[in-house]
Design a protein around this nucleic acid. Sequence first.
DNA 1: ATACTAGGCGAACGATCGTTCGTATACTAG
DNA 2: CTAGTATACGAACGATCGTTCGCCTAGTAT
Lengths: 215, 215
Amino acid sequence: MAQDGRRARGDASRRIVLHSATDLASVEGLDGLSIGRLAEASGSSKSSIATLFQSKEGLQLATVAAAREIFTARIVEPAREQPRGVRRVAALLHNSLAYSKDRVFTGGCFFAATAADVDSKSGPVRDAVRAALIDWYGYVEAQLRHAVDAGEIEADPEVLAFELVALNEEANSRSLLMDDARPYALAAAAMRARLLAAGAPAASLAPLASPEPPP
Amino acid sequence: MAQDGRRARGDASRRIVLHSATDLASVEGLDGLSIGRLAEASGSSKSSIATLFQSKEGLQLATVAAAREIFTARIVEPAREQPRGVRRVAALLHNSLAYSKDRVFTGGCFFAATAADVDSKSGPVRDAVRAALIDWYGYVEAQLRHAVDAGEIEADPEVLAFELVALNEEANSRSLLMDDARPYALAAAAMRARLLAAGAPAASLAPLASPEPPP
DNA sequence: ATACTAGGCGAACGATCGTTCGTATACTAG
DNA sequence: CTAGTATACGAACGATCGTTCGCCTAGTAT
């Protein structure tokens, strides 16, 4: 069975539905993601969605997985072009800010929106969101550890990763709430300054350079 | 009419309901805050809540106002005992971390939870949450500006306020999602280091000192 | 051709949502 | 006492929720 037309058709439908689902969930949260509105947004029927994903929880888990793929494709994959260490960290941070600023999801960063939605609950959905963020935090920290080991910077990787991720998420949330793009420039400047203070060579921080000079 | 027993009775009821409402909203969000569950949690009836607050939007606005009072009483008011400038900033940050860590609301910081809920929407509820956070950000920044003017530290108040608030919010969200108190210690350490790097006297940062020495 | 599986949809299920109505109970104002 | 106002509740409203059922089509397997 090299190919199963039925599965292929189902996968295509899932893809279409999940595209709407990730976007809707970034605005309404994983709890506010309703099958009815999703059916309307994706052009299929409630019952189709229910059978494609078995249950709402199945839909939520698939939505998280789909968002994770987009997150990786937009942020992590492109950064792999940079050598490990500070250069890759700078690329990661730049990509992450751009992914939020460009509104890849209508509601900004998918995981910022959904983490707040599930962080006080329990169950597989929360676990899936948590796993995605643990991976992300761990990857940033690992790259910083590499930079420290290579002598590029001098810092505690855990604390520095915490600081940089905090700046990234603050930019996302404040930009959304205030409807203002300035927080991204603010965050980039703070990230750059923080890495410079840790001893990073300025040339390795090009992705975090401000596009326009401060007035 | 020095006192109106009817209004007094209503106000008492509103107080009780709002106590449950702020806690429920910190977990479920302002959208997930349902009148039915709130009625059950607060011991009154759906119709009573509807008449006390006119509509769900009225309830949401009253809930934000109630949470704002608690936020101010827990964080801003106690910090006023400290002199303006770095000492007050340190007190603000310490109080803010404690308010999250002590789970004054079951879902952690009320405004972190609800900001994520409303930041992609529009209307009076979003405006109320935004106004509360603008006030908070502005207060922190004003205290930092005072510290700069007094020569206590050397920094851009806007950027530094952004950094410190980001650390505070990251501690809240990560602690909730990971069910771990360590992010608070991490954030406090980063705040302290950041203020020290800006030239703040160590004695003024006592509230941010780690309770236990690092191993 | 037959049996089986995966989608896909309309219709309906019970549950819960926010809201409204009618009615009863305090309390005030005149 | 009377008229008016602010709670308070039960009951019901229409709408939407997640889910299930029946029925049909598309594709696979034997």
